[in-house]
């Protein structure tokens, strides 16, 4: 097939057209335009974009808001990423035990994943209500007075993290389970014969062998963290007192509520730079801990 027949050229072009046009219109061109827009001031409704140099970026870095928003995102990341990876890993190990009936749990745990973020967040907004909500009433049964989960600035981001873990657990535990299933089980038998205890087996065999999957999970959850949006929009709207404002929520608010497209585009370029740098850093760091057979 390596030989390129002349009349294949026509088909190659035809077959690649839909995706290539899609790439140009919905990826490359918008990226360049976003970069240009970020140096302009524009309200979409009237006129054309006004070139204003780096003013948008200057405003972003001069104000307090950007640092608060990044701080909020950082808070989310340090709670969410360890939380989701550890819990998914534990559940995946339980899935991998091959105990009868485990499949049923796999099916049921996937239901939060199927639920839309909007519906899931609405359910939790009600369940986390300080007075009439499910959670505080359950806590009340055992004599704990729960906080105002979504109205107390100390707890609002924690609530967003907990809801995100609830939503994603079924997904990432399946992904990691897929990785665990790919491990050749004779390795475990060999370790048992050599007298390794279960902690040693986990540390020396399971973790290295499943590390490519964990790497994928780490990259995905990190990117997701910066794209945090619907759960915040529905549950808190960024509040209370801006304690759950995050970058995508700001992009939406500036771009499509205040119609300040240039400012929103500048924020989105910063988001892009953050995501690309973190991905590159992780690709470099992976050499230190990810084990490919």
């Amino acid at each position: 097939m390596k030989k390129l027949h002349k009349n294949f050229k026509f088909y190659i072009i035809i077959f690649l057209i839909p995706c290539s046009i899609g790439y140009l219109i919905f990826s490359l061109l918008p990226m360049i335009s976003a970069l240009y827009l970020s140096f302009t001031s524009w309200d979409v409704i009237g006129g054309t974009p006004n070139f204003i140099g780096a003013e948008n970026y200057q405003n972003i870095f001069d104000g307090d808001e950007f640092y608060r928003v990044m701080g909020n995102t950082f808070k989310f990341i340090i709670l969410y990423i360890p939380g989701i990876i550890i819990s998914s890993f534990l559940v995946a190990i339980l899935f991998d035990t091959k105990v009868k009936g485990v499949t049923g749990f796999r099916i049921l745990l996937f239901i939060p994943v199927l639920t839309s973020w909007v519906a899931g967040s609405i359910i939790w907004k009600s369940a986390l209500n300080g007075q009439y909500g499910l959670i505080n009433n359950i806590l009340g049964l055992i004599g704990i007075e729960g906080p105002g989960w979504l109205t107390d600035t100390k707890w609002s981001m924690v609530s967003v993290v907990l809801v995100s873990i609830w939503k994603d657990l079924g997904f990432f535990s399946l992904i990691i389970f897929g990785g665990l299933r790919g491990i050749d089980k004779t390795v475990y038998e060999a370790a048992e014969i050599d007298g390794a205890n279960s902690f040693q087996t986990l540390r020396r065999i399971t973790l290295p062998l499943v590390s490519p999957t964990l790497f994928f999970v780490l990259i995905t959850t990190m990117i997701n963290s910066f794209q945090l949006f619907p759960q915040v929009m529905v549950m808190t709207g960024g509040g209370p007192l801006g304690s759950t404002q995050v970058i995508v929520e700001r992009i939406y608010t500036y771009g499509f509520k205040y119609f300040n497209m240039g400012y929103a585009a500048a924020l989105s370029m910063i988001l892009l730079i953050v995501i690309v740098s973190i991905t590159i850093i992780q690709l470099i760091l992976q050499k230190k801990w990810v084990f490919y057979e």
Binding site: S27, L29, P30, M31, L37, Q227, I251, G255
Partner: peptide, 9 residues
């Protein structure tokens, strides 16, 4: 490149 970046253009 997330949709939030390309979304505006």
């Amino acid at each position: 490149v997330p949709i939030q970046v390309t979304g505006i253009p």
